[in-house]
Structure formats: structure tokens, C-alpha cells
Design a protein around this nucleic acid. Structure first.
Lengths: 358, 358
DNA sequence: TCGTTTGAGTAAATCGTTTTAGTAGAGAAT
DNA sequence: ATTCTCTACTAAAACGATTTACTCAAACGA
């Protein structure tokens, strides 16, 4: 789109570097036909049936030769479709969002859709502003990933890990009851009765429900998690640092625990570091469960036992849902919550509770 | 942009859900003014100076009340600027690309730019096709991340970790000589003389140069790396699995090595797993150096000694460079290579070579 | 031979903006 | 009284496609 100073036709007759894109009008002029005819033929419109093969071939040949590429902007403006979605994420490099985006992209590319990404970094002003600028750019739908939706949209919106019920917003959420059951059940079966918990940062969509369901699962087994063994993550870096710091505090209380349920894999990794620093071995002294099953969880040392979220699938589902809504295959009566199931992945960071310790 | 069935004005007089976006023309009709006047005022054009404050206020008030949002498509078409870049990546969830994207975004948002992401998954057809469809969508520039550029572009292109010299393409690259010196030097200083090497996958842009510079740095110190101690990564998953498999092969040769220079952190993590599985302790028996310094490298167990690439910075630099080119602040005479410097981060996975072993 | 199809196209409107080139009227200058 | 300059606007032409509603000639049917 930037206009290079001049069209420079090379000696071989091909226009190469520095050429400016050729428009339909130019192509039409070149052929001595109208843009109408070209448009009909190039888009294989039904009414192009009356155009003879001969002419069609000429058109295709010229289009190829001059490297004609329809201007998607102009087309979008005319047909009122951009085939573009907006995706809101907290941050890209946290492993979580990237995995979801992968799924989103998988669902979109086959359908000729692209997406604009916008990170809000948990900043209030951006959370307020970004949906608007995406809409201004005529996205046809929005996928919010672990991001609060604060507006009543007039376009399809799917929130991955969203828990608020908002008219017109579909939430893709993990079955957290099940996840909690899997985690606490695993600890319970291994004989753990003193469980510590790393609660997510306040800005994380899943923090509340994950906390509540885990607490409930623990209560149901009569092994409630003591308040002093609950620690909230603080700081918005997607680094194990936050889990490390929180676990240090947990240790500092002096209260005994044989198992730790981390908010996610990244914090679990930080937690393990903190535990080992004070001489507590994982899993011999403390068992640790993570959440998400990010790449790398399997190769951590010890390999992380974790509750797997199908993040790729969640992204794909979100994108497919938006597309369905755009295609009119979903409406106000469709379910506003789409559930996906967690899986317990048992690896090396959990073990039967040690009998020999005090 | 999708047209909801009907404009539904709610009883309170505010149009809410289901409203269709209001256009400049509608706003103008509402005010009894022309679109020209509105456009001049809303964009604060110089020629709007003759419009009385009174009228301007009316316009702004009406725009706010009817929630007027200019259609970016139409505007872009008219002014021939989209403020949009295209970003080509191999895959999103490999940690590397995500980090670079973070930097790209940081540089773009202040400038009002957005970007479309496209993953090629190392597929030939996509590598061929994607630049074209991005251009069709009128991106003003392209940033290729660890991705070969196979076309002579007529728009600004910056290749992060690109090593081919292509007219019109600026490469942002790490100072690999320095990186190799840092890594091999560190090993050498610790007394290591038998070094093994994990070479990157063939599709990775850095594979060749990283290999060559490391080999040279080793030769310069008269500790050449034996052919049998070189192993190439195979498989395109961004998982430690590939490093694990390659290291297994390395071990299977039976040849002795006291140090391992991995292609990146992810493969280093896999390598450590493979080593420990056969009873080799890291760093006591084998020292391991990674590359990149991804999140998590610091919290791996043992914490990874690694060559840090400033990935965020590289993304930012790439984006800034494209923007400069668009602003006409760079031209054909500008350097076509932008260097960034690596840093050696010493952690727990390297140690002085053990004297007691055979 | 006249009217009707059919074949092969085209003119012009449209999408929602920006921008160039005016215009109509009021007051000032000559 | 006429010209000139402001002031406060506006008409219409872009941008590059798509699409509706034609046109004009030739062929066909009666």
C-alpha cells in the first residue's frame, strides 16, 4: 500500500521491485473490458455464464501476468465482510494465551479468516479501549482469552475462561468441579490430608472458581484447606517467580503441609524451587500438582503432575463458535456456556504421603 | 459489521444491543450538516478553523451520543494506509515467537498499528501463500520471525533471525560469533574439553550460523567438536522431546563428553532429562548450556545456564524498523542487518569439569 | 418482417470515508 | 455600487472493489 516513488519496469519486461499494485480498473483498461466483466469472471459469479471461455481465459491470463490481487479493503467495504476477528489476551508470552491462539488460528485459516491480536496487560485503560478499536477496525467477532468482557457486544463474542454471564457472550470454560475433584482426589488417594493451595492472581478469570471448587472438593473429603495454607499469587509477570514468592510465604508460616495444589504449572515450578531451597524434596516430602499442562511441564524436574486444560481445543472451539454465529448457525437460544473437560496427568511431582515423618 | 436483523431502539431512547453502527452520513443527516463538515471537524483538519465552536460542539456531542465510530476500512481505503502489519511465525506456542511478538506489539500499539499473525507451521504451501494473502489484506509491512523470506518484497520487510541477503529485507540478527564465544568460552574456562553439540532442525533459520560459529569457537581453542558428538534435532514440535531424543542418540554412541551445548533452552531441558535417565548428573557429570533464556529456564531444575537472546528487544526493533521505513526514515542505503547482543547467563547447569572421573 | 430471446457485455450506484474545489451570503474596502 | 475578503459551509470526486440494472447486436420464431 505504501506508494513507492515510481513504477519501474525492468528490462526483462516484468515489473518487479518497486511496482505498485495493479487495480481492477487498470487490468480492465489493459484488456479493453469493463471492471464489471472482470469482477464477474474472476469471482466466478453465476451471471458470468454468458461470457465465452475465450474471454475468461484472456482475463485470467492477464490477471496472472500483471499479478493482480484484489484489494481486500475495497472488497470488504463493499460486501460488508472483513473475515477478520479480534483476539484479546492479557499477554502473549505466558504460554496459556499462545496455546489458545494456536487453536484459534487452526480453526480460522481454513475459513479464510485472520485475526488481530491485542494485549491488555491487565491495564484498565486498555481493557476499556481495545474492544472499541477492534470494532472500529471492523472485526466480525471477538475472542477474549482470560480477559473480562465489560461491554454488551453487538457482535459475536466468545470468552475463553470467562465466568460472567453477559448477554451475547458465550463462555468456553473448563469443568472446574471435575478438575478440582481430579486434583484433590489424587492427593486424597495418595494419603495427603494437609494440603496447601496457591490461589491465582485477582485478575485471572479462573481464580475464583478454581479456588471455590478446590475448597469444596477438599471439604467434601473432610480435609478442608486451612486459611493459613492458602496463599494468593501476586504480580503479573508470567514467570515462576510469583509461585516461588508465594510458596516462600507459605513455608514461612511454619505450618505443615504434605501437598501443594498450585494455581498453574508456571507457579508450580516456582513452588518446587522454593520448597527445594528449604530442603523439602518433591515429591518425597511435598507433592505438587500444577494446572494447564503447558509444554515443558512433562520435562520439568521432577516432571509435573498436573491438571491438563485442552487449551488448543478451547481456542479452536471459541473460534468455531464465533464462525458459527456469523454463519447464523447459532442464535440467542444457543447454550451460552461451552464446557471442556480436564484430565489428570500423573507424573513425578506427586507421591504417596510419607509415613515416616512426624 | 454483520448486520443484525433490525435496528432496535430501546424504550429509554438509547440504542443498545442489536443496533447497527451509525455512519458519518447518518450522523450528518441527524445534524443537518454535510459529511464534509463532520469529517473536517472530527479529524481536526486545518480547514475546520472557520467552523464556529458552537457547531463543533454540536458535532462532537452528536458523535458521542450516537456512538459514532469511523469505519476504519473506508478510511484506510481512502487515505491508502491501513496501519496494519503482517507477522509470519512458524508457530505461536514455541515460546520464541511469542516473546518476539510481545516486543512487536509493544512497538506497534503506541503508534496505532495492529498486526495480523499467520503461522506457517513449516509447511511449504503456506510459506509460499501467506505473504501474498497478507499483502492482499493491505498490510503495510511484514515481519518474518524465524521464517525464510522467499520473495522480493515491494513493501518493508524485516526478518528476525533471517540470514539470507535479499534486496529490501532487513535482518535482525543476534551476534552469533559472540554467542558462540560466550558459550564455548564458558565451557573452556570450566575445564571442559569434550563438548557435544545439539544442532538445530534444518528449518530453523539460526541452525547453520549457530553451528558454524560454535564449531569455529571450539576450533579456535583447539578443542574441536568431534563429528560423533554432533547431533541434529529432528521433529518440529516445540517440545523438549526433540532434545531428549537427540541426546539419547548422543549417549548411545558411547563417546565421552563432559559438556553439552544445546540448540536452545527447550532442547536443553530435554537433554537434561535424557542425561539423568542414564544416571549422568547435571552439572556434576555433564554441564549443559541452553540458548534463548526463555521464561522457565531460570526455574528449571537445575536452573539453566544459557545464552540469552533479547527476543523482546528483537521484536521491538523489527517493528520499529518497519515503522521507520514507512515513515521514510530509512531507505535503500540503510544497513540491511541490525545486530543485537547475546548475554551469558550462568546458572546451575554448568560446573567445573570433574577431576575424579576417568 | 417484426418481435422476442440470447449472448456479450457495460454504466452507474454502492460501501463509508477523506479531500479538493467550490458556493452563497455578509461585511469591508474602494 | 462594485469588488473583495471572510465565514460557514457543501457538492462531488476520489479510494477499489461488487452488483444491479441496463444496452446493443445478432439470432430466432412466427
Amino acid at each position: 500500500m505504501p506508494r513507492k516513488p515510481k513504477e519501474k519496469t525492468e528490462s526483462n519486461g516484468h515489473t518487479k521491485r518497486g511496482r505498485t499494485a495493479v487495480s481492477l480498473k487498470q487490468l480492465a483498461a489493459h484488456l479493453g473490458l469493463s471492471t464489471t466483466t472482470l469482477s464477474l469472471v474472476l469471482n466466478d459469479a453465476p451471471s458470468a455464464s454468458s461470457i465465452p471461455e475465450e474471454t475468461k481465459k484472456r482475463i485470467f491470463a492477464a490477471a496472472k501476468e500483471l499479478e493482480y490481487r484484489p484489494n481486500y479493503l475495497a472488497r470488504s467495504l463493499r460486501v460488508q465482510r472483513t473475515h477478520t476477528l479480534g483476539v484479546l489476551v492479557p499477554e502473549l508470552s505466558d504460554g496459556y494465551s499462545a496455546m489458545v491462539l494456536n487453536g484459534v488460528e487452526a480453526a480460522l485459516t481454513n475459513e479464510g479468516f485472520f485475526y488481530l491480536t491485542a494485549s491488555h496487560l491487565h491495564r484498565d485503560d486498555l481493557l476499556e479501549k481495545l474492544p472499541g478499536v477492534l470494532i472500529e477496525r471492523q472485526v466480525e467477532g471477538i475472542i477474549a482469552v482470560d480477559t473480562p468482557v465489560r461491554f454488551e457486544p453487538n457482535l459475536p463474542v466468545v470468552n475463553v475462561s470467562g465466568h460472567d454471564e453477559i448477554a451475547g457472550v458465550t463462555n468456553v470454560i473448563l469443568n472446574h468441579q471435575h478438575a478440582a475433584e481430579l486434583g484433590i482426589g489424587h492427593f486424597f488417594d495418595l494419603g495427603h490430608r494437609q494440603i496447601a493451595l496457591l490461589k491465582g492472581q485477582t485478575f485471572s478469570s479462573d481464580t475464583e472458581i478454581r479456588f471455590d471448587t478446590i475448597m469444596k472438593a477438599a471439604c467434601d473429603r473432610s480435609i478442608p484447606i486451612a486459611q493459613r495454607l492458602q496463599q494468593q499469587l501476586e504480580g503479573d509477570l508470567p514467570s515462576p517467580e510469583v509461585g516461588y514468592a508465594a510458596t516462600k510465604k507459605l513455608i514461612a508460616t511454619g505450618d505443615r503441609f504434605t501437598a501443594l495444589f498450585a494455581f498453574n504449572d508456571v507457579s508450580a515450578i516456582g513452588a518446587i524451587r522454593a520448597l527445594e531451597e528449604v530442603g523439602l524434596r518433591v515429591p518425597e516430602d511435598v507433592s505438587v500438582i500444577g494446572f494447564d499442562d503447558i509444554y515443558g511441564a512433562a520435562f520439568h524436574n521432577p516432571a509435573l503432575t498436573t491438571i491438563r486444560q485442552p487449551l488448543f481445543e478451547m481456542g479452536r472451539l471459541a473460534a468455531k463458535t464465533v464462525l458459527q454465529e456469523l454463519a447464523g448457525e447459532r442464535n440467542g437460544n444457543s447454550e451460552s456456556v461451552l464446557n471442556v473437560e480436564p484430565t489428570l496427568i500423573v507424573r513425578q511431582s506427586t507421591a504417596r504421603v510419607s509415613q515416616v515423618r512426624i
